[in-house]
Design a protein around this nucleic acid. Structure first.
Lengths: 219, 219
DNA sequence: AGTTCCATGTCGCGG
DNA sequence: CCGCGACGTGGAACT
């Protein structure tokens, strides 16, 4: 990784056009070729950037970065304050826990937690307007479409409603009922779901994964 | 801005839990207090971060960052390779051009591009659930509500649907038709729009702004 | 402060 | 490679 502190002016033309007046900034060039221009604020997001893959060409007083998608970044260098190179090696990567995918896995294994008599037909059941998280069969022969969210909000109910509309109209699975599952569901989402005859279930994540990995305090 | 290169291990607990095994990384601390941990790849996004406001406490072999929202970041420092501080001053800020607002301006000037016989009533026409991008009158006396996106996706169709529902129910403008306009519209969004009798139009941004401001090559 | 909506969103997965 | 949806989405504008 290369870190350059420099007085610079920046112009970007690509998905939009943007301009940065002259100021002192950090230019970060990573091993994968991506370039980011940071100011001393504005959270972790850079002011301007080019993602890999791209081509960086350094001239005397300016850098040009071009991407195969036709994006262009021009960095005019007025003065270099410092220019350092560090070898970080490859990162072992981030381990995440507690996201929707994990919740879906666990519920696919135990769909009965969302309603008695449910068995899985398949995960990510495809429809014209996108995949349904879980499609299940009920013991009575009816079908149940399940939308899973980490946090249940109104958007999720809308999404499930669309799936139900299409599944009931175009497939031979009809009638299809809906179940909205999340670790936590906002009151508005509960109201809307109930109003549309969609069952909602708040699932206990820790209970679901059992004693597998107890939550630990960091410090 | 402070830049530290260090061998470190990182644990985050907040909206989810995450762990980074020991490796050499860049720790970036900005003037606004935000902390970002970068590897040598993976675009501009850090592996882990804490946004301002937060509290950074440095101990002998570890840093703790806590946010008022109850998020915690623990950085265990095994070895410091370098530790530098730079004064960047405040940034004059980014100037952008070519976003949705601009598209709306251009279409407000030439609404007929979205359908024959359309004339503008007003931009940002207020409703109780938010402003409609453009409200137009058709030559036949009917009203047309227009939602504009840079990229047309299903969310935008939902948004327009809500406006139409409301306008048709509570206003004396009824009947109100809908037009969904974007530079590019996803197939699913087209399907949903058509299904709801909403016309969709893909507009050519460059053609729209015509000779007004020709795209300039940076280099 | 809470809500809504845009974003050069970015990222990852499945077809 | 494209399409699609999640994201610790982040960030700004408006109530």
């Amino acid at each position: 990784m290369r870190l350059v502190i420099a007085e610079c002016t920046v112009d970007y033309a690509g998905r939009l056009t943007a301009h940065l007046p002259r100021a002192r900034r950090l230019l970060m060039v990573k091993a994968d070729g991506c370039v980011a221009i940071h100011a001393d604020g504005g959270a972790y997001k850079p002011l301007n950037w080019m993602n890999a893959p791209n081509t960086l060409v350094e001239h005397e007083h300016h850098w040009t970065v071009t991407s195969p998608k036709g994006e262009e970044l021009l960095i005019t260098i007025h003065e270099v304050i410092s220019d350092t190179d560090v070898d970080l090696g490859i990162d072992p990567g981030l381990q995440k826990d507690g996201v929707e995918a994990h919740l879906q896995e666990l519920l696919a294994l135990e769909p009965h937690r969302l309603g008695d008599g449910l068995t899985l037909i398949r995960r990510e059941y495809p429809t014209e307007i996108g995949p349904v998280d879980l499609l299940c069969r009920h013991a009575d022969g009816s079908t149940v479409a399940i939308e899973i969210k980490r946090r249940g909000e109104i958007d999720g109910v809308e999404q499930l409603t669309r799936y139900l509309e299409f599944l009931n109209r175009v497939s031979d699975l009809a009638p299809v009922r809906g179940v909205f599952a999340a670790q936590e569901i906002k009151p508005q989402a509960k109201t809307l779901a109930s109003d549309r005859n969609i069952t909602w279930v708040e699932v206990d994540y820790d209970e679901l994964r059992g004693v597998e990995r107890p939550q630990q305090k960091l410090f």
